[in-house]
């Protein structure tokens, strides 16, 4: 089994406030505690509910060590790609900073700016080569109905960006709420690309917004996979 360094992320795409299950901010904090960064894309809405949704989105990202952007549906695609890239870079910078600290007792900021550039070139190279595990969690509550095609294309588009990296990609997609009483539904298990057919058929908007349970479920998927992939190896290089 390769001891490949892996970055683990959850990307939540939502258009509102959670209203079912445990607090999503707590769920994000638990994820971050396990080395998983949580990014949130909030889709622009109107009224007071939207404002509350923005605040929640920001709090989830803050607790999850990730980024939050509130965008128009048309911008989800570009935003998802930008956030994934920037947060990967952030995570790698933290790792490199820790290494610098242990080797030289210095952070990147302590170095002269021209030398920082060389550190960043290392970060750039790592970003291209590191393995990425990503769970995309899609809010499919009733209000998302007319945004489904845009979200679907955005997820497909994100996978186009990630597939061409040198490092391996494992992407899973889940939607919330699930069928019937279920809080979440697995749209596709971890795979090296997004299954467009599964997306087409599985995305149906209905019901409430169990964001917290969705984040918890995403974490469990990642943990399960971690167990599967490196059941045997001992200490491994782990990011974050």
């Amino acid at each position: 089994m390769s001891k490949e360094a892996t970055i683990r992320q959850i990307l939540v795409i939502t258009d509102g406030c959670s209203n079912i299950g445990p607090d999503p901010v707590d769920a994000a904090r638990r994820a971050y505690g396990r080395g998983i960064v949580v990014n949130v894309i909030g889709i622009v809405g109107d009224g007071e509910a939207a404002q509350k949704g923005y605040e929640e989105a920001q709090s989830i990202a803050d607790a999850g060590g990730g980024m939050c952007r509130i965008v128009q549906p048309a911008d989800i695609s570009a935003t998802a790609q930008m956030m994934t890239h920037q947060t990967m870079q952030m995570t790698l910078q933290q790792v490199v900073n820790q290494e610098l600290m242990s080797v030289m007792g210095k952070t990147t900021e302590d170095l002269p700016p021209t030398e920082r550039s060389r550190v960043m070139q290392v970060v750039e190279k790592l970003e291209e080569e590191v393995a990425l595990q990503l769970v995309v969690a899609l809010d499919m509550s009733a209000s998302m109905r007319d945004k489904i095609p845009t979200v679907r294309e955005a997820v497909r588009d994100l996978s186009l960006s990630l597939q061409v990296r040198t490092g391996s990609l494992a992407v899973a997609v889940l939607s919330f709420p699930g069928k019937g009483e279920e809080m979440t539904k697995l749209v596709q298990p971890f795979s090296d690309k997004v299954d467009v057919a599964a997306l087409e058929s599985a995305l149906v908007a209905r019901g409430g917004t169990p964001t917290g349970p969705a984040i918890d479920y995403a974490v469990s998927l990642i943990i399960e996979r971690r167990g599967e992939v490196d059941g045997f190896d001992g200490p491994r290089r782990d990011f974050a």
Binding site: T108, E109, P113, R116, M120, V123
Partner: peptide, 13 residues
């Protein structure tokens, strides 16, 4: 961030 500045600088260089 210092990182972003250093990164863009290295690209220009």
């Amino acid at each position: 961030g210092a990182g972003q500045v250093a990164f863009e600088w290295s690209l220009l260089e």
